[in-house]
Design a protein around this nucleic acid. Structure first.
Lengths: 251, 251
DNA sequence: CATGATTTGTCTAGTTGTATAGAGACCTAG
DNA sequence: CTAGGTCTCTATACAACTAGACAAATCATG
């Protein structure tokens, strides 16, 4: 497994910036010292990257003067990574779903504290995949207090929507009290479910939904495929538009 | 009863010396050659011990440079309230920073559209690392319209804080118009900067800050180390805060 | 034009990462 | 007991990167 050397990725990055017009023909690149600082490598490693660009006639260097751009490469592939954009507040409410598991069992500590239940109280566990245009985009696990919603497990087998299922069990409205976001690597089973490579980056959202009285009704974990989904947060009220479509990627 | 391998005892010995403060966070361990001499084993055996320490996040190695201690192991839980914390609305206000680059150059398409500038207009680019307790936790790149803030590049070299720098350039207040969150794999250079493995999961936040008149003043990208940071979003105002600390549980 | 600071070019030395090959100990199936 | 496999460790070689020093060309400034 020969990993590609660092200088190669540095060269690729610089090539991309030249291609995007950040440095145009005739422009002077940052000095070797500056580049080594920016990329966190030794000057010699930065030099190696520059030598690669010079060998491909993209730049040329003049001793004492600097490194200058010769020509911009025409085609630099800019892959589009994120295809779906999803409002954070509505996360976990994607329309199409595939149920993986519905069961009732005692809560573990995290679930019990999140739902304000005594440890060991029964919870309904709802695990599944969220799909968009037939592509899996997220893997979720939701927990509900079983004592409060005796019929919920049965309801969920019919309507996969959490909102509808809760409505059928007496919860007209609920709000998200708190969300915690971080990034994790995909486990082997998650990779399988989401059609990704093992270890691929996932956006993990952990949250609690509460009823109007402030009582927790759902504790949910959702892992979004990092290359397919972006969550948006608007400053107004958290109600951003959920949009589908190609989004250009950044540096 | 499987006899424990030699490398395990070597690792334990080194771990003990780290715990006793013989080597403190950031210190360089003896070279592999020296360790192999000291313990009377082959260099690969010493490497195996170091690999074990690295897998447990006690040390990390930099090719060509050496092996360095990451954090004091025992009583330094980067705890729940070792609170470096950060409001996403003012992303770029984390306590300690290390500047990687400050330069002025033409904007690429993403930067131009985010800042509502014509393509090719000059932008000031501010790239750096955010540190907490001497450990890097995030890598950020911010762009500002150069025409509007002629002195900003100079200001940033003195005060690393974006808020203060903008204040010194006439922006008393600004708000975050929009945030976009996703997960990405660490690039080789990001992995270097953040002392992670290549491909490790990063939480990427992309956002635009606007002045009270609604004019964009900053376009920022931040990559948080997924294993060190979680963003919390409260339902009230849609703002997000970053905090280091307690690791979320797994499924 | 002269000087000093900056910048690239080159050299030497040291350190970690990776690949290959092999010896010996240990375990297990037959 | 034997044969074959895995695990641990040794040995060697090379690649990739860091570190520092100095020389040579250039540029800015007076």
């Amino acid at each position: 497994m020969a990993r590609s050397p660092i200088w190669r990725s540095i060269a690729a990055e610089l090539e991309g910036e030249i291609a995007r017009g950040l440095y145009r023909a005739g422009d002077k690149l940052p000095t070797e010292a500056e580049l080594s600082l920016r990329f966190g490598v030794n000057r010699h490693t930065a030099r190696r990257a520059l030598a690669d660009l010079a060998a491909r006639d993209l730049v040329h260097s003049r001793r004492g003067a600097g490194v200058f751009v010769k020509a911009a490469p025409l085609d630099y592939p800019i892959g589009e990574r994120v295809r779906f954009s999803q409002n954070l507040r509505a996360s976990g409410r994607l329309p199409e779903k595939r149920v993986l598991r519905i069961e009732t069992r005692p809560a573990d500590r995290a679930e019990a504290t999140a739902l304000a239940l005594p440890e060991g109280a029964e919870v309904i566990v709802y695990e599944g995949l969220s799909l968009a245009e037939a592509m899996p985009v997220a893997h979720f696990i939701s927990c509900f207090p079983a004592a409060r919603f005796p019929g919920l497990a049965a309801t969920l087998t019919e309507v996969s929507s959490v909102t509808q299922a809760l409505k059928a069990n007496g919860i007209e409205d609920y709000t998200r009290a708190h969300t915690r976001l971080t990034a994790e690597a995909a486990t082997p089973t998650q990779a399988l479910h989401l059609a990704m490579r093992e270890g691929a980056p996932l956006l993990r959202a952990e949250g609690v939904n509460v009823d109007p009285a402030g009582q927790p009704v759902e504790y949910g974990l959702t892992w979004f495929a990092g290359d397919r989904v972006a969550l948006t947060v608007s400053s107004e009220d958290g109600s951003a538009q959920a949009q589908t479509g190609a989004q250009p990627s950044s540096p």
